[in-house]
Amino acid sequence: MITARDAGLVACRSCASVWPQDQATCGRCGARLQSRDTGSLQRVWAWWAAGVICYIPANATPMLITRTLVTKQDNTIVGGAVEIAKHGDVLIALVVLVASVMIPVGKFLAIAYLALTLRRGTVQSAHGRQVLYEVVDFIGRWSMIDVFVVAILSALVQLSVVASIRPGPAALTFALSVIFTMLSAQSFDSRLIWDEAQLDGPDTPLPDLDTEPAAPRPDQPQGETS
């Protein structure tokens, strides 16, 4: 196992090709080449802070303003989920709570943990942290569910005086918080996680890439080619 940096090379993160260390742009895909993204942590923390700041008003102000003939109701994110649970749809209430409370808070904690442990070190393996990073990166987009629900409801429920739903200010701050956190996760250069891992010396021959054959499929004869 040897890294591109130790071999005096630079890898393109966009197309996985390998170039001499002093080359500035990738000859295959045209992306900018950087052995390690030196500004990575600064951008991670900047977007992270912006995301946390937006998340506070997102929970304190109403997300959904519902008017019916007799009532007017302002629902915050958590309030809305509690409302759904009261109607008996505990499962849906859980989906909302997971998507708009657990995932955002979990992401803030996970990104902070990944960024802090780069400097301080940790007992957790690099592979464990890589998996954590991939989960954070994958799951972040799903928090947009709540914003979309508000959009659908406020477009659909416009029945003049009988019932109408309007978006509250939290729709904006929550959407911003999700976007900023996605940008924070994207700024993180996961290669930094692996840098202190144990490596072979630079004189070791390069390994071949491991390949796995296709999983056998019962419905198709083996050895068929296109």
Partner: peptide
């Protein structure tokens, strides 16, 4: 090169 961990 692996884009995630820089191994070649």
């Amino acid at each position: 090169a692996c884009p995630s961990c820089d191994a070649i």
